[in-house]
């Protein structure tokens, strides 16, 4: 069952919209904030809470890349792989992560701490390459600064 806190947050969010359906994406994100990802059970519960069919919610959930329908690690690394970051060497950063954490795009470390995902342009192109770890933006990445950043993550 979605816990009270999750339900409360979802209900609060629904108030911004004239129809409950409109809050469904926000609801999935709230679930994710608490549980990292949206399990089948959670999906069904959100659908019930909002009052839309699970299939419809699944259609929505599988459309957006920031809704995770598979388990992710504690920290999701969103590495921008769009053009400005490509020009400035995001490939090297990807390689650096692979070397350090032994994961490539779509993979999670064995200890469940990191998941690496490619990310469309982060809108931080003047400080490319960029990535987000969780909600924190890291910029002007170099293989060296990458090590520091990963070390700094709890």
């Amino acid at each position: 069952m979605l816990n009270d806190q999750v339900q409360k947050e979802i209900r609060g969010e629904l108030e911004h919209y004239p129809t409950p359906r409109a809050g469904c994406i926000e609801a999935l994100k709230i679930v994710q904030n608490h549980e990292r990802w949206v399990s089948d059970t959670a999906l069904q519960e959100v659908a019930d809470l909002i009052g839309i069919p699970a299939a419809e919610l699944e259609g929505v959930a599988t459309f957006y890349n920031l809704i995770y329908r598979q388990p992710v690690g504690k920290h999701v690394i969103l590495l921008c792989d769009s053009v400005s970051c490509w020009l400035t060497g995001c490939g090297k950063i990807r390689a650096g992560i692979k070397q350090r954490l032994n994961i490539d795009f779509g993979q999670t470390t064995a200890d469940d701490r990191f998941t690496l995902l490619p990310m469309a342009c982060l809108g931080n192109c003047d400080h490319a390459p960029s990535m987000m770890v969780g909600e924190v933006l890291h910029q002007d990445l170099t293989p060296e600064s990458l090590d520091q950043i990963l070390e700094g993550v709890d």
């Binding site: 994406i25 999935l28 929505v60 459309f63 957006y64 890349n65 469309a120």
Partner: peptide
């Protein structure tokens, strides 16, 4: 309203569908 990703959400009519809680 914060989005859940996808470049197509920037296209104004897709954006509206997304705001309505649908596939963009």
């Amino acid at each position: 309203h914060t989005s859940a990703g996808r470049y197509i959400c920037g296209e104004e009519t897709a954006l509206l569908n997304s705001l309505e809680g649908k596939r963009a």
